[in-house]
């Protein structure tokens, strides 16, 4: 308790806690004094009003559900694919490993923005094109980190497993995967952020539902307060994803720290 108190009263912790109220004050002050264009930054009260009514009137619900499910589904597909491909590659010979991991990782440089319209044409304007975009962007960070993590095991450890007559599957599940988990979680954290970005981009490019679509609709009406409300929703989504992954990581990688 005492330690907690001491920790909580450290100057930087206090300062960190003060940043948010200060930012809110600055927002209110700047809009009241008309320092910023209201079209860029409307009054905080208006934004919160819109946020409240978006939820209270249920306007946001179908869009939120569509975006969240696209992100989650795409994230799941991309992450599983990334881990499976990485695991398959670790059992190949060295030259193949280097060649294929480099080729795959290079593909990541292709911006999802130019792929998204094509995915829309291929899969239609519905949810599947968003899931496709999200899983493509989730794949790469998971693949890269999983591949690096799965290759972490030492020759001695491999020898030991072999001397115990461990099968390939056992080596993978009992040795490689646990060694790779911390790295994989690092990749998952990037991947969830990437799949959120990819989903939004795909929704911007063309859809009939989703938060990205809603945002463009408000842009058409020059309703910046509502656009800020949706940005806050996105911030919330990002924060939830971050916290959930953090908790999952502590649970799964319990032997660390």
């Amino acid at each position: 308790m005492r330690m907690l108190l001491r920790r909580a009263t450290r100057p930087h912790v206090v300062a960190a806690a003060l940043v948010l109220p200060l930012a809110v004050l600055a927002w209110i002050g700047a809009t009241r004094a008309e320092l910023v264009a209201p079209i860029l930054l409307p009054e905080l009260g208006d934004v919160l009003d819109r946020l409240w009514s978006l939820f209270a009137e249920g306007t946001i619900r179908p869009h939120l559900v569509r975006t969240a499910s696209s992100v989650l589904l795409g994230f799941a597909i991309g992450a599983v694919a990334g881990i499976v491909v990485a695991a398959a590659l670790t059992s190949a010979d060295r030259v193949s490993q280097r060649t294929y991991s480099t080729m795959l990782a290079s593909l990541e440089a292709v911006p999802i923005v130019v792929i998204a319209p094509i995915l829309n044409t291929l899969f239609g304007f519905g949810m599947s094109s968003k899931v496709a975009a999200a899983s493509v962007s989730a794949f790469f960070p998971v693949f890269v980190t999983a591949f690096a993590g799965l290759s972490l095991v030492s020759a001695d450890e491999l020898k030991l497993m072999r001397s115990l007559r461990a099968s390939r599957l056992q080596v993978m599940v009992k040795l490689r995967l646990p060694a790779a988990l911390p790295a994989i979680f690092g990749g998952l954290r990037i991947a969830i952020a990437f799949s959120l970005v990819a989903t939004v981009i795909a929704e911007f490019v063309g859809t009939d539902r989703g938060l990205g679509y809603l945002m463009l609709r408000f842009r058409g009406a020059y309703d910046t307060a509502s656009m800020w409300a949706i940005i806050l929703v996105f911030a919330g989504l990002g924060a939830i994803a971050f916290v959930v992954l953090q908790v999952a990581e502590r649970r799964v990688v319990h032997w660390r720290r």
Binding site: V200, M227, F234
Partner: peptide, 23 residues
């Protein structure tokens, strides 16, 4: 003091600001 907020900003997809900036 700002580290936690930078982390939060990382989780926010920055592309959502694009429509706002265009407006």
């Amino acid at each position: 003091a700002l580290a936690p907020y930078l982390g939060a900003l990382q989780a926010l997809p920055k592309v959502v600001f694009a429509p706002l900036l265009i407006t």
